[in-house]
Every structure is written in C-alpha cells, then in structure tokens.
Design a protein around this nucleic acid. Structure first.
Lengths: 107, 107
DNA sequence: TATAAATATTCATATATTCGAATATTATTA
DNA sequence: TAATAATATTCGAATATATGAATATTTATA
C-alpha cells in the first residue's frame, strides 16, 4: 500500500494521523514517557475502547510503537521528531492566537 | 468559534489543514515564493476551482495569506514555522520509508 | 481450567471531507 | 459598457472518519 503512494500522500497520511484532538492528547501524555492503554484511558477520562482505537491508528501509521509486558501494552512515541513537529505546530498556533487577540483587543 | 475550542482541537485543525496531498503540493510550491492561483493550477495540473478551494481552506486556517494585485491574487505561506514543521514531518517520513525498505530487503 | 484484568476488534450511525460541474464575482481592457 | 481574464463559491455524490456499544482476544492468577 505504502509503495503505491507518492510522498505527498504519505505526508498527508502522517498529518491525518495527527489531525484528531484525542490522538494529540494521547501523544501529549506519551511525551512524558511510555504508558499503558488503561493509564491513558484513566488520565484522559476516555473509554478504553476509544483510546485503543486511536492507539491502533497511531501505531499502524508508525507514530507510536509498543512494548508488551504481561497483559500490559506500553505505548511510546516512536520518533522524537514527531514530538518536535508537533511542538512547532503548537508554537505556530500560539503565535496565531496571540496575533488574533491583539487584533481583537485593538477594536 | 476559535475561542470555544481547546488547544488540542485547534492543533488538530492545523493538522487537518495539512492533511491533504494537494494542499501539501500547493504548500511545497509556495515554499519557492508567492504564487497566483493560475500559476499553481498550471504547475500542479489541477483545475483552477479545485486549487482555489484548497487555498481557501489554507487561508481561513491562517496557513497562507494573500496579496492582491489587480485581478491576480498572490498567495504565500504566512508563518515560516509551518514550513519547518512540514519539513520535519517529511524527515520522519523519509526515515520511516528507509527503515521499512531495510526490513523488506532483509527478507 | 475458570475467572479476572488488560487490550483489541467489529459494527452501525453520525459527521466531515473531497472533487467535479456549474456558476458567480471581481478586475482589466477594448 | 461589453467582453475577457482571474479567482471564488455553491451544490451533490462518493468516500473517509469518529464514536459508543457490544464483544472478542490475550495474559495472568486463583
């Protein structure tokens, strides 16, 4: 499948993977270090099945990887550049919000 | 609208904006410098209306901004960090592809 | 082996996105 | 002002995505 896609489609797939608030919250948790499905579920107050679904998306697109220990599955961010890219976008967002509030407060 | 959303939703919106192959191709063109709708349409071999639709998405989410000159509209990337974030993701992608081809060639 | 805990999957419904086709708007120029 | 060029918008159909509910799978332990 991956081989049939051009670089822009693959790139879009990565962005699509990040384009969900809950997946971003999960990734934000995982920036602290690896975490099990249940911990994520509890910390984020989101149903286990739902967390699991999103982790599946993240995993199949290579954004996170796993380590199994007994019946626990520990998830972690597979490439630190993912975190960097996310943080860069976060900066853009902050700047954007600040600019906007400047404009609003000028009126 | 923006004020009603939390940081993760806004972040997801940015990612969503980048999560389309054609929009990424447009942004890739715009990395060379500002460009009109028609030039983009011609360079990318995509219908003008379609390019215009995607530019509208990019603009309303603050990723690109415009400069008008007569009946021409010049589009450019509004924040260089967007480009950096895109390029970082591209690096992740390249690494991912390389790792995958290693795995494939080992079999 | 029966039970429980942790995780994953499937299905259905609701919602969002994409594109082409058609058409509208805006600005220039004959 | 009529015609043309550049750009934008609207609509509908096809496709993709997200969620909850229900259930299945896997692993550990009594």
């Amino acid at each position: 499948m991956v081989e049939d896609k051009d670089i822009f489609e693959l790139h879009a797939d990565i962005c699509k993977t990040l384009a969900n608030p809950l997946r971003l919250r999960i990734l934000s948790e995982l920036q602290q270090g690896e975490c099990t499905v249940n911990s994520l579920s509890n910390n984020l107050k989101v149903r286990q099945a739902n967390v699991s679904q999103h982790l599946s998306v993240l995993r199949h697109r290579g954004v996170v990887s796993i380590r199994k220990d007994g019946s626990n599955v520990y998830y972690k961010i597979s490439n630190p550049k993912i975190t960097k890219a996310c943080n860069l976008m976060r900066e853009v967002l902050i700047e954007y919000i600040q600019d906007n509030s400047k404009i609003i407060s000028n009126h």
